[in-house]
Simulated scan of single mutants.
Amino acid sequence: MGDEIRFEDAALALRSQRMTVLASNIANADTPGYKARDFRFSEALANATRFVMPMQQTNAEHIATPLRSTVDLDYRTQLQPAMDGSSVDMDLERAAYSENSVRTQIALQWAMEEYIETGNMINSLKG
Rank of each mutant, 00 (worst) to 15 (best):
R103F: 02
T70N: 08
L92A: 09
R103V: 08
L22C: 11
A48G: 07
F51E: 15
Q109A: 04
F51P: 13
R50A: 14
P32L: 03
F39N: 04
L45Y: 01
D38L: 07
N59R: 13
Y97N: 05
S86N: 14
A82N: 04
H62M: 15
H62F: 12
N120V: 01
S42R: 02
F7C: 09
Y97W: 07
S124P: 04
E99A: 05
N123W: 12
R103L: 05
D89M: 10
S24G: 10
W110A: 12
S124Y: 09
S16I: 00
A13R: 14
S124H: 09
F51I: 13
F7G: 13
L12K: 07
I116W: 15
Y115Q: 11
T31R: 03
Q78L: 12
G85R: 01
L92N: 09
A23G: 09
P66V: 03
L45I: 01
E99C: 02
T104R: 08
R76Y: 08
Y75M: 11
S98R: 10
A48D: 06
A46S: 07
M112Q: 15
A64M: 09
E61L: 15
S24D: 06
A64D: 10
Q17L: 12
R76S: 10
E8A: 02
R37A: 10
L108H: 13
D30C: 05
Y34E: 01
F51L: 15
D72Q: 12
H62G: 09
N100W: 03
K35Y: 04
E99I: 15
M19A: 12
Q56T: 06
